[in-house]
């Protein structure tokens, strides 16, 4: 497996890069394949590498002392993770786990710093990327603080619904609970309620959104 420039091109750090610079910037990346469920980075450990998802999906999460999981966000193909500890040099603020078989492109902390020194455009892109992360996490704080669970579940369904089968990562009820900051049983009850009112259809391993507007309304009303 060679590093695919088309994936590197999608990474936020390289927005606006000319093709020659992209080829050069991609050189220090190395491939890594991880199995479903494998922990890629552990919260509190020193960060060695920045990662880009080449295929599959990775969940970034925090774990409470009681073992409860809170998902911060999912990283998909073309997205990076482990950015913050690589940039500030502090330990990993969250853990990262493969949601299925995942191909990664890794960049060592030293090579990442060299890349930022070499390309001022990458520094500007870093600011935009970190601003985006703050925005994502602020929305999560808003959801967890102010929205009722059913609205959060409706929001998760809308966010992770794809037009085609396989276009978005699959989620277990435990994943949804860890995103919504609630218990798995509560997600199960919410899905049953949404099915009963006709907003969704539970078709074995498929959740079909049959009334998108109703779900959007629940997201709005839940605040």
């Amino acid at each position: 497996m060679a590093v695919d420039i088309e994936i590197i091109k999608q990474v936020a750090y390289f927005a606006g890069f000319a093709s020659d610079d992209l080829e050069e910037a991609a050189k220090p990346f190395f491939e890594q394949t991880v199995k479903r469920g494998e922990i890629i980075a552990m919260e509190g450990d020193p960060a060695e590498n920045l990662y880009v998802v080449a295929s599959g999906a990775v969940k970034l999460f925090k774990t409470s002392a009681e073992g409860k999981e809170q998902i911060l966000y999912l990283a998909h193909a073309g997205e990076s993770f482990n950015d913050v500890p690589v940039i500030d040099g502090l330990p990993n603020p969250a853990s990262a786990q493969a949601m299925g078989p995942v191909d990664l492109y890794a960049l060592s902390k030293v090579d990442m710093r060299a890349l930022l020194d070499k390309y001022p455009k990458a520094q500007k892109n870093t600011t935009n990327l970190l601003a985006g992360r703050i925005r994502t996490l602020s929305l999560l704080v808003e959801d967890l603080s102010f929205k009722h669970v059913i609205g959060r579940v409706a929001g998760i369904l809308l966010k992770y619904a794809g037009d085609d089968v396989g276009s978005k990562p699959r989620l277990t009820q435990q994943d949804m609970a860890a995103m919504a900051g609630t218990a798995r049983e509560v997600v199960g009850r919410s899905l049953k309620m949404l099915e009963a009112d006709g907003s969704i259809k539970m078709n074995r391993h498929r959740i079909v959104i049959s009334n998108k507007k109703a779900l959007e309304g629940m997201v709005e009303m839940a605040t």
């Binding site: 369904l157 992770y160 619904a161 794809g162 037009d163 085609d164 089968v165 396989g166 978005k168 699959r170 989620l171 277990t172 009820q173 435990q174 994943d175 798995r184 049983e185 199960g188 259809k201 539970m202 074995r204 391993h205 498929r206 959740i207 079909v208 959104i209 049959s210 998108k212």
Partner: peptide
């Protein structure tokens, strides 16, 4: 016959079972 009831996932004390859903628009 498996109706994806997810009882196996719910009862597993160590989280070894996943019943993942794909979410699609009708």
């Amino acid at each position: 016959d498996c109706g994806w009831c997810t009882e196996c996932e719910a009862i597993c004390p160590i989280g070894a079972i996943s019943c993942a859903f794909e979410i699609v628009f009708e």
